[in-house]
């Protein structure tokens, strides 16, 4: 197969499958935070601050996949530009 087609497929696969894990993880994190806020509404501030930081950390995993995909598309070392 042509290196360009392989790169595009690789980028699509990287983002598709790379998004699954972080999506599930973010869902679990938000569910846990909701439960905690429902149980202790007075500590909602601390919980949501920690939640945002945690979500950003989880999201980073998906961002790594996006970076790999963009590298494949725009800065592919194997495809002579």
């Amino acid at each position: 197969m042509d290196i360009h087609i392989v790169s595009i497929l690789g980028a699509a696969v990287a983002v598709c499958f790379g998004a699954i894990g972080p999506a599930l993880a973010e869902g679990r994190a938000i569910a846990a935070a909701m439960e905690a806020i429902a149980r202790q509404p007075e500590s909602a501030g601390t919980i949501s601050r920690t939640l945002f930081v945690g979500l950003a950390m989880i999201e980073t995993m998906a961002i790594y996949c996006l970076v790999v995909a963009l590298l494949l598309l725009y800065a592919n070392p194997f495809a002579a530009a």
Partner: peptide, 16 residues
């Protein structure tokens, strides 16, 4: 490395 990619990836992907 991951600190670098985290910041770059988040800001760049948002722009994208």
């Amino acid at each position: 490395f991951s600190m670098m990619i985290r910041l770059f990836g988040n800001m760049m992907s948002h722009e994208f």
